[in-house]
Amino acid sequence: MFTIESVYILMFTSGLFGGFGHCLGMCGPLVASYSVAFKGKNLVPHILYNLGRISTYTLLGGLVGMTGSFLGIAVHIQGFQRFIMIIAGILIVLMGIGLAGWFPFMPFLRNQEIFSLNFVQKLKSISLESLRIGSFYPLGIFAGFIPCGLTYTALITAARTGMEAENHFLGFLNGVTMMLLFGLGTMPALLLFGKIMSAIGAQMRQRLYRLSAILMVIMGIIFIARSL
């Protein structure tokens, strides 16, 4: 039906257009949360986050390409994906709480022997108040596993070409290339969105940080609800 080269182009454009229409709605809350929570202004964390996400897509692409089966892989990672979605939701909620400096349970925790102040500090660090550049790549890897219909479709196409490949290794290479191109296609939308949210976040921290924090908590709860 299509040559492999035209499928590569299709994968990239599918990521590019889907990035603006789909990824912003699905991954937007997570990107918005880390962008607002992170105080740095450069583009490096956003690039690292996206490279992490693309690494996961590439790995999954290689697996479905090699096996020629989307469902074979999807069934095995479904439970894990739900878990990731819940963790992402909890992270967004914690980032929101951390951004506003709300830890209402903090005084209570401080008085408990079992929960030392160290525990509270750890919790605050989870909220990414003190997020470091090095955290963004693993965060992206983790985000790549978030269930996403657009990614599923790309993986189905990768599996299909894997089925038609001469051998498992070629199927693996096709899958890797296709998902790499798809991931690169989604990058401009999320990079732009992340950068804009960082800029807005810098303003919000001074003025509307409480509103921003409330929105993040709501978004986190929606993320958790979607996974249940």
Binding site: M1, L10, M11, S14, F17, G18, G21, H22, G149, L150, T153, A154, I156, T157
Partner: peptide, 9 residues
């Protein structure tokens, strides 16, 4: 909703 390219021959 952009869901990518999914065609069945």
């Amino acid at each position: 909703m952009s869901m990518g390219y999914n065609q069945v021959s």
